[in-house]
Nucleic acid binder design. Structure first.
Lengths: 138, 138
DNA sequence: TAATTACAGACAACAAGAGTCTTTAATATC
DNA sequence: GATATTAAAGACTCTTGTTGTCTGTAATTA
């Protein structure tokens, strides 16, 4: 049980975008370089984030990606759910077992974690040092 | 990102064992029937639980499984960690990125969920109705 | 028109989970 | 001691999802 690599990449990319100057765009090429990913692969992740309304994209030369909302309106959970989907952490496997108490406990724990990650904003960590973007003095 | 089926089966099986009369044992055959699983498959799960010290086993005729500790000493987390292992929910994928702040936030959320599941005892739900064991009036 | 960029989809490679089958070892009963 | 019962161990297959690549298309700028 582990979050996918895609979620990992998505979170780091969102931090990159948050750090971007207002109204500036950045292309996949550059975004991918920071994490040493292939642009085509990261592109699929970015498309998901775009469809979810977290970022905006413009095609063509001088195009690229930028935030679609205010920085303080983007939580960890927003990004995670976009990539991971909305499925539950735990689904009771017993046939015909409505109201499984085990499931209930697990769902409660899940809900609390979800809530916690909803309150955690990506800006708050983007503002701090320590989040290098791969290219050091380039 | 989802807990494995094995964890699901393990939790349900533990509830079965907790409900067992003191000093009674039960074999895989019967345990598996309740969840409609193949005994050989459930057997592998039970072996993990045994090695982890959650349950005890005796081979041979009249053998089987029983709890290895007091009921109030078995938490959801004990069972989950036994099956899922100890790996983290999130590992930063960036090369040479010690002290990743994204990772820190995710690990904190994980730790809180872990703590919550450590406080949840399986007895508490085993005592309640609603957790049928498959065989109805058999 | 040419270059740059996002987007879409097919495809392959790999890893992990789920589950079966077979064999061996230990215990109880007769 | 022989037999039945049970746990344990390991090899093996099947399926599924993730990860990633490659190719082609559409849109925008210059």
């Amino acid at each position: 049980m582990k979050y996918s690599n895609a979620t990992n990449y998505a979170l780091h990319t969102m931090v990159q975008l948050i750090r971007l100057p207002r109204d500036a765009s950045i292309g996949v090429q550059e975004l991918a370089k920071a994490q040493q990913l292939s642009p085509t692969y990261l592109s699929k992740i970015l498309t998901k984030l775009t469809k979810a309304g977290l970022i905006e994209s413009t095609p063509g030369a001088k195009g690229g990606y930028r935030l679609a909302r205010g920085e303080r309106d983007i939580s960890f959970f927003d990004v995670i759910q976009t990539i991971e989907g909305e499925s539950h952490l735990f689904d009771c496997t017993l046939h015909r077992h409505e109201g499984c108490l085990i499931e209930k406990v697990m769902r409660d724990a899940e809900a609390n974690m979800k809530k916690e990650l909803q309150e955690q904003l990506l800006v708050d960590i983007a503002e701090q040092a320590g989040q290098h973007q791969g290219g050091d003095g380039k």
